[in-house]
């Protein structure tokens, strides 16, 4: 599998990572190497094999639907790069 520059640019956009144009070429090469490496999985017969969803032999636990935590907005916000009046501040998203 070989990825071209345009595909890498598209993935980078989906992943919200800014990749400078001059790095797209070498990144395409590295990612293609990895994808070529993983293609050996096609040799494995997986007909009727269920995809693993959990390695532990247990079901997800259920709990009562009740509030057990919270009430400390100041602590939640304490690491925010920009906050105001109990909220995180982000650039304007509505035109």
């Amino acid at each position: 599998m070989s990825l071209d520059k345009a595909t890498v640019a598209k993935i980078a956009h989906l992943a919200r990572i800014k990749v400078p144009d001059e790095e797209l070429e070498s990144l395409a090469g590295e990612l293609s190497q990895i994808l070529t490496f993983v293609e050996q999985l096609n040799e494995v017969d997986t007909k009727d094999v269920p995809p693993m969803t959990s390695v532990a032999a247990q079901k997800l636990r259920r709990r009562k639907d009740e509030v057990t935590d919270g009430g400390y907005a100041a602590q939640v916000l304490s690491n925010g790069p920009e906050t105001a009046e109990g909220f995180f501040v982000v650039p304007k998203v509505v035109e």
Binding site: I17, K18, P81, P91, V93
Partner: peptide
């Protein structure tokens, strides 16, 4: 948004991309 580095951009999407880049 919630913790760590923020690199500003022209809009929210650019801010995400710049920060993560």
């Amino acid at each position: 948004v919630r913790y760590g580095l923020r690199v500003e951009g022209g809009n929210l999407k650019e801010m995400y991309e710049n920060t993560r880049g």
